[in-house]
């Protein structure tokens, strides 16, 4: 099957974008808030998926890109009174810069060594944030609600404390990352990324500079993760070092695996499923991390392709 941008594919993706938008008019308040959060985290997963799902590079350090976006945005609002939009774009730029620097080092390695290097860099970022505690307010975190001016577009003012602004902000963020994933998956670029995942040496000898392609994938991946971090800071008004910790590098891996690595829909489905799994489990036990570990185990053993990956294998072969 060649997975290109057909009308079917386009229609499916636009329906999902439209469906998510409409959901805000029907969902009860509790799930309304949850879905906003899920969409921001799914954006993080969508970014992760570009590197892991399509290019085949497993990272355990993606929290550093999320945190780079979150802190660049948060600190510029907190100390420099940046507006929401300029802070947001600064967040993306910071994550992209971290990705380029990191890629120049880490992409010399592959496989398990790459995994270890990502983990080490991720931990280094986390410790750096804690080390500069006086500036970053890392261990206790800080809120933006007193510093962040409402977003003004034309005559309209959008206050981030308004649930509807949160939801639609999250919706825009996710929709862009989702459509971008679809475009990449269907593009000549996506084809080469998948080729690298499937057979790196063959791809090199076909004449592709695989190093450069991996760097591109890493920067796109890191930038999307950074956008999610920046969006999280603005929409949920909180910045803290816990988002740079290893758990936030494991989460996007889990969400992507659960939903289906290398599928455009996987990150959303995986993030949503895991979110509600934990939500339900924490009603019964405080040890909800067991749920995280348990689901990872079940996944690896029985559903290596995740939810959407299995659906694609069995029924809907044209899913990108």
């Amino acid at each position: 099957m060649n997975r290109r941008l057909t009308h079917k594919v386009l229609l499916l993706h636009l329906s999902i974008v439209a469906g998510l938008f409409l959901a805000q008019f029907f969902l009860p308040e509790y799930h309304h808030t949850n879905l906003a959060r899920i969409m921001v985290l799914a954006t993080f997963a969508a970014g992760y998926n570009v590197l892991f799902g399509y290019t085949g590079l497993m990272s355990l350090g993606h929290a550093m890109f999320f945190a780079a976006g979150m802190y660049a945005t948060g600190l510029s609002v907190y100390y420099l009174d940046f507006g929401a939009l300029s802070a947001f774009f600064l967040g993306i730029a910071a994550a992209a810069a971290v990705a380029v620097l990191f890629g120049l080092f880490a992409l010399r390695t592959s496989g398990v060594s790459f995994l270890i290097v990502t983990m080490m860099f991720g931990q280094a970022c986390y410790l750096t944030i804690l080390y500069f505690n006086t500036i970053t307010l890392g261990d206790q975190g800080f809120t933006l609600s007193n510093n962040l001016a409402p977003l003004e577009i034309g005559q309209q003012q959008f206050a981030f404390s308004n649930p509807s602004v949160k939801f639609n902000g999250a919706w825009i963020l996710f929709s862009i990352s989702f459509v971008l994933s679809m475009v990449i998956a269907a593009s000549p670029l996506g084809r080469v990324l998948v080729a690298i995942r499937e057979n790196d040496e063959r791809t090199k000898l076909l004449g592709y500079n695989t190093y450069l392609y991996k760097l591109m994938a890493l920067v796109v991946s890191g930038s999307i993760a950074g956008a999610a971090g920046a969006g999280y800071a603005l929409l949920f008004s909180y910045v803290g070092a816990s988002f740079a910790a290893i758990l936030y590098s494991i989460y996007p891996l889990l969400w992507t695996l659960l939903g289906g690595a290398g599928t455009t829909l996987g990150p959303l489905i995986g993030t949503g499923t895991m979110f509600y799994l934990i939500d339900i489990a924490s009603g019964y036990t405080t040890a909800y991390l067991f749920v995280v570990g348990g689901s990872l185990l079940i996944l690896v053993l029985w559903f290596p392709k995740g939810i959407v990956g299995s659906i694609r294998d069995r029924w809907i072969k044209w899913l990108p």
Binding site: V194, A195, E198, N199, R202, L205, L206, G207
Partner: peptide, 26 residues
Amino acid sequence: PWTRATNGIVYTFQVTSIYKTLSCYE
């Protein structure tokens, strides 16, 4: 290697190397 391939030196492997999970088209 990619520059050499681009310049016209192309190799087929002793042990066939293709993209086994992808279609012939891809």
